[in-house]
Every structure is written in structure tokens, then in C-alpha cells.
Simulated scan of single mutants.
Amino acid sequence: MSFTVYLSGEIHTDWRDEIRRGATARGLDVTFTSAVTDHEASDAAGDALGPESTGYWRDHKSSLVNSIRTRNLIEKADLVVVRFGDKYKQWNAAFDAGYCAALGKPYVTLHAEDIIHPLKEVDAGAQAWATTTDQVVDILDYVLKA
């Protein structure tokens, strides 16, 4: 069995690489996709459409352009992993989780225990809540090999 897994959320740590390495080490047939993780490139995604007078409109255009990629990759994924880090609020990750819930797309949240309360609704819609990347790899291993 093969799987496509979309990795959503926090972009300031190497959690995506940890999951990829773990899946490779276990010989899992997984294709990983992700949002653009270069913050500056993501912020500039709409710049080709012309300059804006305010940050709001620049962000708005860029979010629309970014959503082309995000929506398509989430819709094509078999599973989405949504990572919430502790340094920044990942509103985009919460949106991705809500999009998964609306589509009936399975998702796993990945975050520390100290932010359970603000993520209670997001976690309630998830098929699992993991606190480590190893747990995510364990889930993939089970789903693909059971």
C-alpha cells in the first residue's frame, strides 16, 4: 500500500525531515507533499500580480495564490499531518485542519501537551494527536503495514 501525506503547519523546525527520515528508515511507501516552507517566498506568492499599497492586500493576494497549491495537495492526500509549534501561532495550520474536517480528509495533529486547550476543537476532529514525529511515523507504519 502506498500513501500520499501532506505536511501542514509550522515551518521553523525540521519536523518534516524527521518524519521523512523515519518513513524511509522503515521502508514505508509514502510520498510527502507540503506547503511552501520558505517564508519569504510564500509571502511574495502574489507579487507577480502587481504591487499593493498595504500589507493587507499583499498578504491577501499571496494567500490566494498559495491556496491553489494547498487546496490541491490536501485534496490529493490520503492523510494530512498538521503541526502546531510553540513559537508562533499557526493560523494557517488550523485552517488546513478545518479544511480537512470539511472534506472528511483524515488528519493527525502534532503538538506539545501544553497547547491542548487552545487546540481542543482541532484535536477533536483529528483521527489522532501525536506529540512526537516518531509517533506520526508509528501511525504511518501501522496504517500501511497492518
Rank of each mutant, 00 (worst) to 15 (best):
Y107E: 09
T132P: 05
H117A: 04
G98E: 10
A126I: 01
A126L: 04
K89H: 12
H111I: 02
F95E: 09
K89E: 12
T133E: 07
G125V: 01
K89D: 14
G98N: 14
A102L: 14
A128H: 06
A124R: 00
A126Q: 01
H117Y: 04
A126V: 02
T109D: 09
Y99L: 11
Q135S: 02
P118R: 05
G125R: 01
K89G: 09
E121H: 07
T109P: 08
P118W: 07
V136C: 09
Q127Y: 03
I116A: 02
Q135R: 06
I116K: 03
L103Q: 15
E121G: 05
A93W: 13
A94I: 13
Y99I: 08
D134R: 06
I115N: 05
L110N: 06
L103E: 15
K89A: 11
G98S: 14
K89V: 13
T132K: 04
T131V: 02
T132L: 06
A124N: 00
W129M: 01
G98C: 11
Y99N: 07
L110F: 08
D86L: 13
D86V: 12
C100I: 13
H111Y: 07
A101R: 14
G104W: 15
N92K: 08
Q127C: 07
Q135P: 00
W129N: 01
A93I: 15
T131Q: 02
V108Y: 09
A101K: 11
G104F: 14
D86R: 12
V122F: 03
E113L: 01
G98A: 13
G98T: 13
D134L: 04
K87R: 12
D114N: 04
A93L: 13
A128Q: 06
V122I: 10
W129I: 00
G104K: 11
Y99F: 14
K105F: 15
T109L: 07
T132E: 02
A128S: 05
Y88M: 11
A126K: 03
